[in-house]
């Protein structure tokens, strides 16, 4: 049983990075596809399209920060379950927000191409999703302080 909990602990420790990386990759691919398409139809402003399409890359960075905050000298039955719970759930949050952020960025790029003046405001939904990722990051850091070493 202990070995299983230890295995879960390692799983939870790396989950924020792995799931965050998947979310970032997926989100950047969605946003990047829209940016590439938009560049075909624009005479300028390529940088801003590409720039916003990279917004979902923050999820993997948050995942790395969470992983380091969860890291323990030893992973055992006492802390394995906590690492699993915090790591897995924060990782799922990064995965989901990364993908959804990519989707809203694709919509924002598409819409602002037709109406450039809404470029800034069209990024608001993506910023809100970023906020949810930050919530997950911050509270994962807070909880990591109460994990028994």
């Amino acid at each position: 049983m202990n070995e299983f909990v230890v295995a879960l602990g390692w799983f939870g420790l790396f989950a924020p990075v792995a799931l965050g990386a998947i979310g970032s990759a997926w989100g950047c691919a969605l946003g990047g596809s829209a940016a590439i398409g938009a560049m075909l139809d624009s005479d300028g402003g390529y940088g801003r399209f590409i720039g916003v399409s990279l917004m979902p890359s923050s999820q993997v960075i948050y995942g790395i920060v969470i992983m380091f905050s969860l890291q323990q000298p030893t992973i055992d039955a006492a802390n394995g379950a906590a690492l699993f719970g915090i790591g897995l759930l924060s990782g799922v949050t990064m995965l989901f927000t990364g993908i959804r952020q990519g989707e809203v960025l694709a919509s924002a790029i598409h819409a602002s191409k037709a109406k450039p003046e809404i470029f800034g405001i069209s990024l608001a939904p993506a910023a809100v999703l970023e906020g949810f990722s930050v919530f997950a990051l911050v509270f994962a850091l807070v909880l990591s302080g109460s994990i028994p070493a």
């Binding site: 969605l30 596809s33 829209a34 398409g37 938009a38 075909l40 598409h110 191409k113 037709a114």
Partner: peptide, 17 residues
């Protein structure tokens, strides 16, 4: 590019009518 990404790029490349 394939699947949904292909269509995101395609739709984004079409100007507003």
């Amino acid at each position: 590019m394939s699947g949904p990404h292909q269509y995101i790029a395609l739709v984004s490349s079409l100007p507003n009518l």
